[in-house]
Design a protein around this nucleic acid. Structure first.
Length: 425
RNA sequence: GUGCCUGUAGCUCAAUGGUUAGAGCGCCUCACUGUGGAUGAGGAGGUUGAGGGUUCGACCCCCUUCAGGCACCCCA
């Protein structure tokens, strides 16, 4: 055992049970994305480091990306996020792609961080973007997609909420309490920290970046004003539209949501598990310059990203992951002895043609062992074909759940299996 | 990058510094050569993460190192 080469730190093995959960989540993501008219796309997992130098947060590339030189001495990186790739792909065909474009993607990403609960070094991320429009309806649609996903997984609006704010509104509001423009970037960071620090620590942090006591008080009033959104025509319209999308239960205004990243310009939002850990399930917002950094013309858009690790924890905690996932065989065809193997194979093929998942025990062995095997795989039906049955053109079918066994004519086989398999999972 | 905690059988864990490191579960065999979950009997499986030190004696104490977990940082 000690000789088995271990897996790379921060990566995960997906055994069939875990893979089934991942498949289930990804299927919901695909269903929701495509239902809203989004097209799937993907880029390479390897990119030149230059792609990220311009745009992403400094720390993301310098300290959190897997960077290495290729045998040809190119500086490459395993993609830590999708947006720069999306920006490049859009810029390359900026005047060919019909705008606005609706694209979505799910794939692996890598960040060199210390793994802990809810965070790995290799993870999957769902990205979805609506690019080429500044319409508020686009913002509402993207949030509606996020809400629809959460709803579809079985999470209730008591368990999860999407909090929405607007950077422009916050900018105006900060002006009313006389916070200088140069401080905005830092102030956004301060607001972002609000729920992560104690009030005392938070106040100290706010003062440290250069705010006065009066400004800190003003800021506190601001971020506790649940009606602040009424001062923003954009947000008023946004929430009207959210009602029409039918997801208003899942969406709330919050002046505390601001997002750390610099490139957001308008609507910003984050989904949180309520009551549980306060880590964001997904986050996104409106940006004005998707492609200008990679050499395109100004192109506004709105989108969000969701990692698979946190959402899976939330889904697990909420107990909404279905019990029986995956595609184990439904029927095991036993092999009585070596001479019977061809007949068993024939029967299995017959069952498959009828649309059931059937596996043949691959060799002749004690029936008890074969049953035990079926048991461990949670297979519900076994087919037994011995010399007695073969001589009279019969076959025995056993319901492993109820222990009922019947011997019937070969032509009745499928009908009997149907009786024993109540519903297709 | 920083801090804290933990490494003993496949898994979950025991074992005052003192014989040959144990248990439950799991695994294999048999009771049961045409029938599984139960029961009983037997069996396999360990360089106690690795290296060094202290000691008459180390799973236990000390140092180093590796790995894992958690938290900070940052973010999905």
């Amino acid at each position: 055992m000690a000789d088995i080469v271990r897996s790379v730190k921060g990566t995960r093995d997906f055994y069939p049970d875990e893979m089934a959960v991942r498949r289930w989540m990804f299927d919901i993501i695909r269903d929701v994305s495509t239902r809203f008219g989004y097209q799937e796309f993907d880029g390479p997992c390897l990119e030149f480091i230059d792609l990220y130098a311009a745009k992403s947060g400094e720390e993301l590339v310098k300290e959190q990306a897997f960077v290495f030189s290729s045998p040809g001495d190119d500086m490459l990186t395993l993609r830590p996020e999708l947006t720069p790739t999306l920006a490049r792909m859009v810029a390359q065909r900026q005047y060919e792609i019909p705008m606005p474009l609706r694209w979505w993607s799910i794939g692996p990403f890598w960040r060199y961080e210390n793994p802990q609960r809810g965070r790995t070094r290799e993870f999957f991320q769902w990205n979805i973007d609506l690019v080429g429009t500044e319409a508020v309806a686009a913002d509402a649609e993207i949030v509606a997609v996020a809400a629809s996903f959460l709803k579809e997984t079985g999470l209730s609006s008591d368990q999860v909420q999407i909090f929405v704010n607007n950077r422009r509104l916050m900018d105006d509001a900060l002006s009313t309490i006389n916070i200088a423009k140069e401080l905005r970037h830092d102030v956004f960071k301060v607001v972002d920290k609000l729920d992560k620090l104690s009030e005392k620590e938070w106040r100290a942090y706010a003062l440290e970046i250069g705010l006065t006591e009066g400004q800190v008080d003003g800021l506190l009033n601001l971020v506790n004003d649940q009606d602040l959104f009424m001062k923003s025509d954009e947000l008023v319209e946004f929430f009207e539209l959210i009602k029409i999308f039918g997801v208003e239960d899942y969406v709330t205004y919050s002046p505390k949501v601001i997002r750390g990243l610099d490139y957001y310009t308008g609507t910003v939002f984050e989904a949180f598990e309520l009551g549980g850990a306060s880590r964001a399930i997904l986050g996104g917002g409106r940006y004005d310059n998707l492609v200008s950094d990679v050499g395109g013309n100004r192109l506004p858009g709105v989108g969000f990203a969701m990692g698979d690790v946190v959402i899976e924890l939330v889904l697990r905690d909420a107990g909404v992951i279905p019990e029986k996932l995956g595609h184990k065989p439904q029927v095991l065809v036993t092999v009585f002895d070596e001479t019977m193997l061809p007949e068993s194979l024939k029967i299995a093929e017959e069952i498959r043609m009828a649309g059931y998942r059937a596996a043949v025990y691959p060799e002749a062995d004690k029936l008890g062992k074969q049953f035990k095997y079926a048991d461990k795989l949670d297979i519900s039906v076994a087919v037994i074909l011995g010399p007695d049955e073969l001589n009279e053109n019969l076959v025995a079918v056993k319901n492993l759940k109820t222990r009922d066994q019947v011997t019937i004519g070969r032509s009745e086989l499928i009908k009997q299996i149907e009786k024993f398999l109540p519903s297709l999972p």
